[in-house]
Computed example of a mutant assay.
Amino acid sequence: MTQKLAVVTGAARGIGLATTKLFLRDGWTVAMVDRDAPELEDVAKDLDGVKAFACDVSQPEAVEQLFADVQKAFGRIDALVNNAGVADFGPIEETTFARWRTVMSTNLDGVFLMSQAAIPALKESRGAIVNIASISGLRASTLRVAYGTSKAAVMHMTKQQAAELGEYGIRANCVCPGPVRTKLAMAVHSPEIIAAYHDAIPLNRYGSEDEIGEVIVFLCSDKASFVTGQIVASDGGFESTGIGLPALRS
């Protein structure tokens, strides 16, 4: 059996790195993509079954070259995980157009560019696209006018992809993580914010990178062969409990 190939963006750390390791566990090979070339090379050198590709997914020419390189290296693409993203939190009136565009160029434009470039190969493999949005795209919160809007747009793009690409056997789904216990989150979340999240999340805890990755890998697998056009919140039930918390407003 030919080994399947997943392209994972934002793969140098966090959910992208965790997802890469879960693909490897399940017997896939992985094209790891990130714009942080030194960090990407550092983590990739310890993994068997991967190849690292430095690329800024917001740049059309870079994306075009990336897919040429991936096809040359592997000859196929079975799944694309659009995980690369940036966050910029702040009040609406302080969000400049430059800050807005920085978020949109990676979070939205990058998903569009990567998906468009992958379509020919995914048609051949009847493969899958999984876009990573956020709980912030499912319901409004404070300080997230650019970030939340970009993720809401990614969710709708996923539905467009599912509607148009299904006839080619390509499935498109979207995963919306809730609060995840990453090193960065734990460094910037105050004790008040951590307590507020625990109170608001029905499972009473943050999620882990592996828990998000498991959902992503499932949606790329044959086990999800009749699942497409879906928005899956992996959030401990947070989306069911309402909108933004007072502790997150400053």
Score class of each variant (00 low, 15 high):
residue 132 I to K: 00
residue 182 T to Y: 03
residue 25 R to L: 13
residue 103 V to T: 14
residue 223 K to Y: 08
residue 167 E to P: 03
residue 203 L to Q: 14
residue 248 L to I: 09
residue 228 T to R: 01
residue 72 K to S: 14
residue 57 V to P: 00
residue 38 P to L: 00
residue 140 A to T: 13
residue 48 D to E: 14
residue 215 V to A: 15
residue 23 F to T: 09
residue 103 V to L: 02
residue 181 R to D: 14
residue 246 P to V: 07
residue 242 G to V: 02
residue 35 R to T: 08
residue 240 S to A: 15
residue 76 R to W: 09
residue 45 K to H: 13
residue 152 A to N: 03
residue 215 V to I: 12
residue 225 S to W: 02
residue 24 L to S: 02
residue 27 G to D: 05
residue 211 E to N: 06
residue 180 V to R: 02
residue 33 V to P: 04
residue 220 C to L: 03
residue 76 R to T: 13
residue 76 R to D: 07
residue 208 S to R: 09
residue 139 R to V: 12
residue 186 M to F: 13
residue 146 A to V: 08
residue 50 V to N: 04
residue 172 A to E: 03
residue 5 L to W: 05
residue 171 R to Q: 09
residue 114 M to Y: 01
residue 195 A to T: 08
residue 239 E to D: 13
residue 172 A to F: 08
residue 164 E to P: 06
residue 156 H to K: 12
residue 194 I to V: 14
residue 156 H to D: 08
residue 146 A to F: 04
residue 173 N to H: 05
residue 99 R to I: 10
residue 131 N to H: 03
residue 80 L to H: 03
residue 200 A to N: 08
residue 209 E to L: 12
residue 8 V to L: 07
residue 139 R to K: 14
residue 201 I to W: 06
residue 211 E to I: 06
residue 140 A to N: 07
residue 202 P to M: 11
residue 4 K to C: 01
residue 36 D to E: 11
residue 107 N to L: 06
residue 181 R to N: 14
residue 198 H to G: 02
residue 38 P to M: 00
residue 52 A to S: 11
residue 225 S to E: 12
residue 12 A to H: 10
residue 6 A to F: 02
residue 86 V to C: 01
residue 194 I to D: 03
residue 29 T to Q: 15
residue 86 V to K: 05
residue 197 Y to R: 08
residue 63 V to Q: 05
residue 194 I to A: 10
residue 87 A to I: 14
residue 217 V to K: 00
residue 201 I to M: 07
residue 156 H to N: 13
residue 114 M to E: 07
